[in-house]
Nucleic acid binder design. Structure first.
Length: 583
DNA sequence: CATGTCTGCCCC
DNA sequence: ATTCTGC
DNA sequence: GCAGAATGGGCAGACATG
């Protein structure tokens, strides 16, 4: 018996309205129990809005969907904007528009509503189009499907294309629902989901084989598992307290986190999101093959970009290696990498994720050469810990990670037994030069801010006409300010609301959902690093900018300058790699 | 062929 | 990635 | 304390367009 997509859409509408998590879970439990084993995995994907990685790559985003909505309903940009501004949600907007301007349909009177299987097949077909004119083909297919279904189905089809459901029911709650629907312990469902990376499959498995089968699911070589995540701590002393007085500190390296699987002479490297990236790092594959004394294993570590003598380079350099296929050999010559390992999850037939961290690390030390391990210090002494932190910074790294010695390897956000401690940079005082209305629950607020520093140079640093909105904003202000970043982070909802009111009085120009402002509001901004920017005309951008507070006491004459930004940028790498960066 | 736009359970 | 909010 | 939502800069690749 197949389930109709419209039933699932109605369920999502209920989830959207219901605030209580327990009730949301119950609603989904009933639904999962009703569905056939053939279709239950599709329900899991469609409700959470997420397909397992490697299963489908749609290559369809906002821009394509926007064009489709416009074409089918024949509305103007302004009409779309007016409707979108009411909710801040693309799916809901399309639903409203199609209710008023229904697409011309080729629908016959005998047509049955689409089943979950049929809808999934559409997604598969969208993913399968590649090569020349594939974008048009994708677009045509979506258009023809959207013109056959109801506005409510359009809403959730679009939400699934984008992957943003906004009904407050994501993977964590889906795991709870699956556990409850099949009377299995939550931890078992989570483990199976972590190991297979496909909660839909786990659910299908439970439906067919019942709860006994799930116990057999375990870590397997070449099947990547979700990485353990870390919480934040202010300083090493805090980490010591939270870990009960004694802990293991390691350097926190600024590169990409990877999981390496090896069996006999086969090696595969997976990203944090479990994408295979083996091809980008042939030199790492060779190292793994020759320098680790074991036949089969799963290890975890970080690959950082370095000079040939192993000095850390800025994070941006590793991105030029990541996922690269073209000119790989040439790039390898210019950007070296260094691999640091920090965990061992499986070794020669034995699954180690349930073992305490100190045991996993000890086994790792037995099979891997010392220089391939992250520098580590186990201590209960806050002074020593602080020294180790300083040493990490001095060597050009991000800070430390503290790992509780007894902790098992746990997936996802849950049970954060790891704590990261990052270096803190001096904050900048910047002016808000433009802002954008947010999306979802923030659609009514100016919640995204363009941050700018004072420009003392008479001429712009780059001679070019404006190409981006940020360039245009600078031009409006005669280059008195230079945009160095954008942020939505740091303020509470109340503060955003209040600030929106103030900013509305400062609007100079409106551009769609963006506004250009009189320079008036000064904010103190924290960030993790200053990067070279190909986007902003001043050539620099703040990484992970967030507002610390609104500086009511400061005027725009007192904000920091682009010179200061440049100075901080240069100071960052002085100790390590400044020569390399000159070009 | 050069340049521009869009996309990525992208990476952080 | 970071941050805030509701349960 | 967890789970979810809302968003940042920058990179390469794939395809579209002129």
């Amino acid at each position: 018996m197949s389930t109709h997509f419209i039933e699932l859409c109605k369920l999502c509408e209920q989830l959207e309205k219901e605030a209580s998590r327990n009730l949301k879970v119950n609603i989904v439990v009933d639904f999962l129990r009703k569905i056939s084993s053939e279709e239950v995995k599709f329900a899991v994907y469609f409700i959470t809005g997420k397909f397992p990685s490697n299963l489908l790559t749609l290559n369809v985003g906002y821009s394509t969907i926007y064009q489709i909505i416009k074409k089918l309903s024949n509305i103007s940009d302004n009409q779309y904007l007016t409707e979108y501004n009411k909710t801040g949600d693309m799916g809901e907007t399309a639903k409203k528009i199609f209710e008023i301007y229904p697409p011309k349909t080729q629908k016959t009177f005998f047509e049955q509503p689409s089943t979950l299987t049929e809808v999934y097949e559409i997604f598969q077909k969208i993913a399968e189009f590649t090569g020349e004119s594939s974008r048009v083909k994708k677009q045509r297919l979506i258009e023809s499907f959207l013109s056959k279904i109801t506005p409510l189905e359009v809403k959730y089809f679009i939400k699934n294309l984008i992957g943003e459901m906004r009904h407050g029911f994501s993977e964590g709650l889906m795991e709870e629902a699956v556990a409850k629907a099949f009377n299995v312990e939550l931890e078992k469902v989570r483990l199976a989901s972590m190991v297979t990376g496909d909660l839909g499959k786990v659910c299908e498995f439970l439906k067919i084989f019942g709860k006994d089968g799930i116990e057999k699911i375990s870590l397997t070589v070449f099947q990547p598992i979700k990485p353990m995540l870390a919480d934040l701590a202010k300083n090493p002393a805090e980490a010591l307290i939270r870990h009960g007085g004694k802990t293991s500190f390691e350097f926190k390296l600024d590169g990409v986190r990877i999981q390496i699987h090896k069996k006999n002479s086969n090696v595969k490297i997976f990203s944090r999101r479990l994408k295979e990236v083996t091809e980008a790092f042939p030199e790492i594959v060779e190292k793994i093959k020759h320098e680790i004394k074991a036949d089969s294993f799963v290890v975890e570590g970080e690959i950082i970009p370095t000079t040939k003598n192993g000095k850390p380079l800025p994070f941006q350099y590793i991105m030029r290696r990541y996922g690269r296929v073209k000119n790989l050999e040439k790039t390898i010559k210019n950007i070296a990498t260094t691999l640091y390992l920090f965990d061992l999850l499986y070794l020669d037939g034995e699954v180690l994720i349930g073992k305490p961290f100190y045991e996993r690390r000890k086994k790792l030390e037995e099979i891997a050469p010392n220089q391939m391990l992250t520098p580590q210090l186990i201590t209960s002494n806050p002074v020593e810990a602080e020294k180790f932190f300083e040493e990490a910074i001095k060597n050009g790294h991000e800070g430390l990670v503290a790992k509780q010695l007894e902790s098992a390897y746990t997936p996802g956000i849950r049970g954060k037994k790891w704590l990261k401690i990052k270096k803190v940079l001096e904050t900048l005082d910047l002016v808000i030069l433009a802002a954008e209305y947010g999306h979802g629950y923030r659609h009514d607020w100016l919640s995204d801010y363009y941050l700018a520093a004072k420009n003392l140079e008479v001429k712009p640093i780059f001679e070019k006409d404006y190409v981006s909105f940020a360039d245009y904003v600078e031009k409006i202000h005669n280059d008195r300010f230079k945009v160095v970043g954008k942020t939505f982070k740091g303020l509470t909802d109340e503060e955003i609301k209040t600030l929106t009111g103030k900013l509305k009085n400062l609007i100079l120009e409106k551009h769609g959902r963006a506004v250009i402002l009189k320079p008036k509001i000064v904010v103190e901004v924290a960030y993790s690093e200053i990067q070279k920017s190909p986007l902003y005309s001043c050539g620099y951008a703040l990484r992970f900018a967030r507002i610390v507070r609104i500086r009511e006491d400061k005027t725009i004459d007192e904000i920091d300058t682009t010179e200061k930004v440049k100075e901080i940028f240069e100071k960052q790498f002085k100790t390590t790699t400044s020569n390399f960066l000159e070009r």
